Amino acid sequence: MSLVNQFRSEQPRSALVAPSALVRQTQQRKQHQQWLIYGARLLLVIGVLLFWQFGSGTLLDSSFLSNPLAILHQTIIWLSDGTPWYESTLVMNTAVTLEETLLGLLFGIISGLILGFLFGLQPTLERIFSPFIIVLNSIPKIALAPLFILWLGIEIPMKVVLAAVTVFFLIFLNTLNGVRSVDQHLIDAVRLMGGRKRDVIFKVILPSATGSVLTGLHVAIPYALIGAIVGEQIGANRGIGYLIQSCGEAFNPAGVFSALLVLTLIAALLNAIVNLIDHKTSHWKASLKLSSSNQS
Protein backbone atom coordinates (compact mmCIF):
# COMPACT_ATOMS: atom_id res chain seq x y z
CA MET A 1 0.00 0.00 0.00
CA SER A 2 1.32 3.38 -0.95
CA LEU A 3 1.82 6.14 1.55
CA VAL A 4 -1.04 8.12 0.01
CA ASN A 5 -3.50 5.24 0.31
CA GLN A 6 -2.34 4.54 3.84
CA PHE A 7 -2.89 8.21 4.76
CA ARG A 8 -6.36 8.17 3.24
CA SER A 9 -7.33 4.99 5.10
CA GLU A 10 -6.09 6.29 8.43
CA GLN A 11 -7.44 9.87 8.14
CA PRO A 12 -11.12 9.14 8.89
CA ARG A 13 -10.15 7.02 11.90
CA SER A 14 -7.98 9.77 13.39
CA ALA A 15 -10.61 12.36 12.59
CA LEU A 16 -13.13 10.32 14.54
CA VAL A 17 -10.91 9.52 17.51
CA ALA A 18 -9.67 13.04 18.22
CA PRO A 19 -13.08 14.74 18.58
CA SER A 20 -14.44 11.92 20.78
CA ALA A 21 -11.46 12.20 23.11
CA LEU A 22 -11.91 15.96 23.22
CA VAL A 23 -15.59 15.53 24.07
CA ARG A 24 -14.75 13.11 26.87
CA GLN A 25 -12.17 15.51 28.28
CA THR A 26 -14.65 18.37 28.15
CA GLN A 27 -17.32 16.29 29.89
CA GLN A 28 -14.88 15.16 32.59
CA ARG A 29 -13.76 18.74 33.14
CA LYS A 30 -17.37 19.92 33.50
CA GLN A 31 -18.12 17.05 35.88
CA HIS A 32 -15.11 17.88 38.03
CA GLN A 33 -16.13 21.54 38.12
CA GLN A 34 -19.66 20.55 39.11
CA TRP A 35 -18.42 18.35 41.96
CA LEU A 36 -16.10 21.17 43.05
CA ILE A 37 -19.08 23.55 43.19
CA TYR A 38 -21.15 21.03 45.18
CA GLY A 39 -18.27 20.46 47.58
CA ALA A 40 -17.73 24.19 48.08
CA ARG A 41 -21.43 24.69 48.79
CA LEU A 42 -21.44 21.84 51.32
CA LEU A 43 -18.36 23.18 53.07
CA LEU A 44 -19.89 26.65 53.20
CA VAL A 45 -23.10 25.35 54.79
CA ILE A 46 -21.17 23.22 57.30
CA GLY A 47 -18.90 26.13 58.16
CA VAL A 48 -21.82 28.50 58.77
CA LEU A 49 -23.63 25.92 60.93
CA LEU A 50 -20.53 25.18 63.00
CA PHE A 51 -19.82 28.88 63.52
CA TRP A 52 -23.46 29.45 64.45
CA GLN A 53 -23.51 26.52 66.88
CA PHE A 54 -20.23 27.18 68.68
CA GLY A 55 -20.59 30.96 68.54
CA SER A 56 -24.07 30.90 70.06
CA GLY A 57 -23.98 32.30 73.57
CA THR A 58 -20.51 33.83 73.13
CA LEU A 59 -20.11 35.70 69.86
CA LEU A 60 -23.82 35.48 69.01
CA ASP A 61 -26.78 36.24 71.24
CA SER A 62 -28.65 32.93 71.58
CA SER A 63 -31.80 34.66 72.81
CA PHE A 64 -32.23 36.20 69.34
CA LEU A 65 -30.48 33.74 67.00
CA SER A 66 -30.83 30.42 68.87
CA ASN A 67 -28.56 27.69 67.44
CA PRO A 68 -28.83 24.78 64.99
CA LEU A 69 -29.20 22.08 67.64
CA ALA A 70 -32.01 24.00 69.37
CA ILE A 71 -33.75 24.47 66.03
CA LEU A 72 -33.41 20.74 65.30
CA HIS A 73 -34.77 19.94 68.76
CA GLN A 74 -37.77 22.23 68.23
CA THR A 75 -38.44 20.66 64.83
CA ILE A 76 -38.37 17.14 66.32
CA ILE A 77 -40.79 18.21 69.08
CA TRP A 78 -43.22 19.64 66.53
CA LEU A 79 -42.98 16.47 64.43
CA SER A 80 -43.57 14.09 67.34
CA ASP A 81 -46.33 15.84 69.29
CA GLY A 82 -49.19 14.31 67.32
CA THR A 83 -50.65 10.83 66.97
CA PRO A 84 -50.81 9.84 64.16
CA TRP A 85 -47.81 11.67 62.71
CA TYR A 86 -49.84 13.74 60.22
CA GLU A 87 -51.62 15.44 63.12
CA SER A 88 -48.39 16.83 64.56
CA THR A 89 -47.97 20.58 64.86
CA LEU A 90 -45.46 20.99 62.04
CA VAL A 91 -47.18 18.67 59.55
CA MET A 92 -50.66 20.14 60.07
CA ASN A 93 -49.53 23.75 59.79
CA THR A 94 -47.28 22.98 56.82
CA ALA A 95 -50.20 21.30 55.04
CA VAL A 96 -52.36 24.41 55.54
CA THR A 97 -49.71 26.78 54.17
CA LEU A 98 -48.91 24.44 51.28
CA GLU A 99 -52.60 24.23 50.36
CA GLU A 100 -52.97 28.01 50.39
CA THR A 101 -49.79 28.49 48.35
CA LEU A 102 -50.64 25.87 45.72
CA LEU A 103 -54.20 27.12 45.28
CA GLY A 104 -52.97 30.71 45.06
CA LEU A 105 -50.41 29.68 42.45
CA LEU A 106 -53.01 27.71 40.50
CA PHE A 107 -55.58 30.50 40.30
CA GLY A 108 -52.96 33.22 39.77
CA ILE A 109 -51.17 31.28 37.02
CA ILE A 110 -54.33 30.32 35.13
CA SER A 111 -55.81 33.81 35.19
CA GLY A 112 -52.45 35.44 34.42
CA LEU A 113 -51.79 33.13 31.46
CA ILE A 114 -55.27 33.56 29.97
CA LEU A 115 -55.33 37.35 30.20
CA GLY A 116 -51.65 37.67 29.26
CA PHE A 117 -52.13 35.72 26.03
CA LEU A 118 -55.46 37.43 25.34
CA PHE A 119 -54.05 40.94 25.72
CA GLY A 120 -50.91 39.97 23.82
CA LEU A 121 -52.92 38.68 20.87
CA GLN A 122 -55.38 41.59 21.01
CA PRO A 123 -53.34 44.82 21.31
CA THR A 124 -56.52 46.90 21.34
CA LEU A 125 -57.64 45.28 24.61
CA GLU A 126 -54.21 45.86 26.08
CA ARG A 127 -54.30 49.56 25.19
CA ILE A 128 -57.78 49.91 26.74
CA PHE A 129 -57.01 48.19 30.04
CA SER A 130 -53.32 49.06 30.39
CA PRO A 131 -53.83 52.14 32.65
CA PHE A 132 -56.11 50.22 35.01
CA ILE A 133 -53.70 47.28 35.20
CA ILE A 134 -50.80 49.61 36.00
CA VAL A 135 -52.80 51.26 38.79
CA LEU A 136 -53.90 47.93 40.30
CA ASN A 137 -50.40 46.49 40.09
CA SER A 138 -48.96 49.53 41.90
CA ILE A 139 -51.12 48.84 44.96
CA PRO A 140 -49.13 46.90 47.62
CA LYS A 141 -50.85 43.52 47.82
CA ILE A 142 -50.39 43.35 51.58
CA ALA A 143 -52.58 46.45 51.90
CA LEU A 144 -55.44 44.42 50.40
CA ALA A 145 -55.37 41.84 53.19
CA PRO A 146 -57.75 43.71 55.57
CA LEU A 147 -60.21 44.12 52.70
CA PHE A 148 -60.06 40.41 51.89
CA ILE A 149 -60.63 39.63 55.58
CA LEU A 150 -63.80 41.74 55.51
CA TRP A 151 -65.01 39.90 52.40
CA LEU A 152 -63.87 36.34 53.11
CA GLY A 153 -63.06 36.10 56.82
CA ILE A 154 -59.82 34.67 58.19
CA GLU A 155 -60.12 31.15 56.81
CA ILE A 156 -58.18 29.61 53.92
CA PRO A 157 -60.02 31.41 51.05
CA MET A 158 -58.68 34.79 52.19
CA LYS A 159 -55.05 33.58 52.04
CA VAL A 160 -55.65 31.90 48.69
CA VAL A 161 -57.05 35.09 47.17
CA LEU A 162 -54.18 37.17 48.58
CA ALA A 163 -51.60 34.76 47.14
CA ALA A 164 -53.45 34.53 43.80
CA VAL A 165 -53.63 38.31 43.39
CA THR A 166 -49.92 38.58 44.07
CA VAL A 167 -49.09 35.82 41.58
CA PHE A 168 -51.51 37.04 38.90
CA PHE A 169 -49.70 40.28 38.03
CA LEU A 170 -46.30 38.56 37.85
CA ILE A 171 -47.56 35.87 35.47
CA PHE A 172 -49.70 38.29 33.48
CA LEU A 173 -46.91 40.82 32.85
CA ASN A 174 -44.33 38.15 31.98
CA THR A 175 -46.75 36.37 29.65
CA LEU A 176 -47.69 39.63 27.96
CA ASN A 177 -44.03 40.50 27.51
CA GLY A 178 -43.32 37.04 26.10
CA VAL A 179 -46.12 37.30 23.54
CA ARG A 180 -44.99 40.79 22.52
CA SER A 181 -41.38 39.72 22.00
CA VAL A 182 -42.14 36.92 19.52
CA ASP A 183 -39.95 37.11 16.41
CA GLN A 184 -42.14 38.50 13.63
CA HIS A 185 -40.01 36.67 11.03
CA LEU A 186 -41.15 33.33 12.46
CA ILE A 187 -44.80 34.37 12.30
CA ASP A 188 -44.39 35.53 8.71
CA ALA A 189 -42.64 32.27 7.78
CA VAL A 190 -45.48 30.15 9.18
CA ARG A 191 -48.05 32.25 7.35
CA LEU A 192 -46.10 32.01 4.07
CA MET A 193 -46.11 28.23 4.41
CA GLY A 194 -49.90 28.27 4.66
CA GLY A 195 -50.18 28.11 8.43
CA ARG A 196 -53.39 29.24 10.05
CA LYS A 197 -53.77 31.41 13.12
CA ARG A 198 -53.95 28.32 15.30
CA ASP A 199 -50.59 27.15 13.91
CA VAL A 200 -49.05 30.55 14.64
CA ILE A 201 -50.31 30.46 18.23
CA PHE A 202 -49.34 26.89 19.12
CA LYS A 203 -46.16 26.55 17.04
CA VAL A 204 -44.63 30.01 17.40
CA ILE A 205 -46.21 32.26 20.05
CA LEU A 206 -46.74 29.67 22.79
CA PRO A 207 -43.19 28.18 22.60
CA SER A 208 -41.65 31.66 22.34
CA ALA A 209 -43.49 32.92 25.42
CA THR A 210 -42.62 29.84 27.48
CA GLY A 211 -39.32 31.31 28.68
CA SER A 212 -40.97 34.48 29.98
CA VAL A 213 -43.76 32.48 31.64
CA LEU A 214 -41.26 30.24 33.45
CA THR A 215 -39.31 33.30 34.59
CA GLY A 216 -42.56 34.66 36.00
CA LEU A 217 -43.17 31.33 37.75
CA HIS A 218 -39.78 31.43 39.46
CA VAL A 219 -40.53 34.93 40.73
CA ALA A 220 -44.13 34.09 41.63
CA ILE A 221 -43.31 31.16 43.95
CA PRO A 222 -41.82 33.22 46.82
CA TYR A 223 -44.53 35.86 46.35
CA ALA A 224 -47.24 33.20 46.65
CA LEU A 225 -45.63 32.08 49.90
CA ILE A 226 -45.46 35.71 51.05
CA GLY A 227 -49.17 36.15 50.35
CA ALA A 228 -50.07 33.02 52.30
CA ILE A 229 -47.75 33.81 55.23
CA VAL A 230 -48.84 37.45 55.53
CA GLY A 231 -52.48 36.39 55.47
CA GLU A 232 -51.81 33.87 58.24
CA GLN A 233 -49.97 36.42 60.36
CA ILE A 234 -52.72 39.00 60.01
CA GLY A 235 -55.52 36.66 60.96
CA ALA A 236 -55.28 32.89 61.42
CA ASN A 237 -54.99 30.17 64.03
CA ARG A 238 -52.98 27.72 61.92
CA GLY A 239 -50.32 27.68 59.22
CA ILE A 240 -46.58 28.38 59.12
CA GLY A 241 -47.24 32.11 59.32
CA TYR A 242 -49.24 31.54 62.49
CA LEU A 243 -46.36 29.50 63.93
CA ILE A 244 -43.86 32.26 63.14
CA GLN A 245 -46.14 34.88 64.69
CA SER A 246 -46.81 32.88 67.86
CA CYS A 247 -43.14 31.93 68.31
CA GLY A 248 -42.08 35.54 67.83
CA GLU A 249 -44.54 36.69 70.48
CA ALA A 250 -43.28 33.95 72.84
CA PHE A 251 -39.60 34.91 72.23
CA ASN A 252 -38.89 31.46 70.77
CA PRO A 253 -36.28 32.03 68.02
CA ALA A 254 -35.76 28.29 67.56
CA GLY A 255 -39.41 27.94 66.57
CA VAL A 256 -39.17 30.88 64.17
CA PHE A 257 -36.11 29.41 62.43
CA SER A 258 -37.72 25.97 62.31
CA ALA A 259 -40.76 27.42 60.55
CA LEU A 260 -38.51 29.40 58.19
CA LEU A 261 -36.67 26.18 57.36
CA VAL A 262 -39.96 24.58 56.34
CA LEU A 263 -40.76 27.58 54.12
CA THR A 264 -37.34 27.26 52.50
CA LEU A 265 -37.95 23.58 51.74
CA ILE A 266 -41.37 24.36 50.24
CA ALA A 267 -39.90 27.08 48.01
CA ALA A 268 -37.05 24.78 46.94
CA LEU A 269 -39.51 22.00 46.06
CA LEU A 270 -41.71 24.30 43.99
CA ASN A 271 -38.70 25.79 42.20
CA ALA A 272 -37.44 22.27 41.43
CA ILE A 273 -40.79 21.52 39.77
CA VAL A 274 -40.52 24.69 37.67
CA ASN A 275 -36.94 23.75 36.71
CA LEU A 276 -38.20 20.34 35.61
CA ILE A 277 -40.86 21.97 33.45
CA ASP A 278 -38.20 24.29 32.04
CA HIS A 279 -36.03 21.28 31.16
CA LYS A 280 -38.93 19.46 29.52
CA THR A 281 -39.77 22.47 27.34
CA SER A 282 -36.18 23.31 26.44
CA HIS A 283 -36.53 21.59 23.04
CA TRP A 284 -39.12 24.24 22.10
CA LYS A 285 -36.64 27.03 22.74
CA ALA A 286 -33.86 25.18 20.92
CA SER A 287 -36.00 24.64 17.83
CA LEU A 288 -37.08 28.28 17.83
CA LYS A 289 -33.47 29.48 18.07
CA LEU A 290 -32.56 27.23 15.14
CA SER A 291 -35.49 28.55 13.10
CA SER A 292 -34.54 32.14 13.89
CA SER A 293 -30.95 31.55 12.80
CA ASN A 294 -32.10 29.96 9.56
CA GLN A 295 -34.37 32.93 8.86
CA SER A 296 -31.55 35.39 9.42
Rank of each mutant, 00 (worst) to 15 (best):
P157T: 02
K141E: 07
L162R: 00
R191I: 05
I149M: 10
L147E: 05
N137A: 15
L162I: 11
F148T: 13
L170V: 15
N174L: 05
N137V: 11
L173Y: 10
V190H: 03
F168I: 00
A164C: 04
F172N: 05
L186F: 01
F169H: 09
L147C: 13
N174K: 02
L176K: 11
A164P: 07
L147A: 14
F148P: 04
D188P: 00
F148C: 05
L162F: 00
I171T: 02
K141M: 10
L173W: 10
G153Y: 06
L176Y: 13
Q184P: 02
V161D: 04
A145I: 15
F172P: 03
K141Q: 08
A164T: 04
V165L: 14
I139A: 12
I139L: 14
V182K: 03
N137F: 13
R191G: 08
K159H: 12
V160F: 06
G178C: 05
V165Q: 08
L150K: 07
H185R: 14
N174W: 02
Q184A: 09
L144S: 10
F168T: 02
V179G: 03
D188L: 05
M158P: 07
N177E: 08
L186C: 07
M158D: 08
M158T: 12
F169Y: 10
D188W: 00
I142S: 12
F168N: 04
A189V: 01
K159V: 09
K141F: 06
A145S: 11
V165G: 07
S181E: 13
F148E: 02
R180K: 13
S138C: 10
S181Q: 15
I142N: 09
P140H: 10
I156T: 15
I142P: 06
L186N: 08
E155K: 13
L150M: 15
Q184K: 12
P146A: 13
A143R: 11
W151F: 12
N174R: 01
E155Y: 12
L144F: 12
G153R: 06
V179N: 01
P157A: 05
I149T: 12
H185I: 03
L186R: 06
I142C: 11
V190S: 11
R191D: 03
L162C: 00
G178T: 02
F168R: 00
A189G: 00
L162N: 01
L176M: 07
D183F: 02
A163N: 08
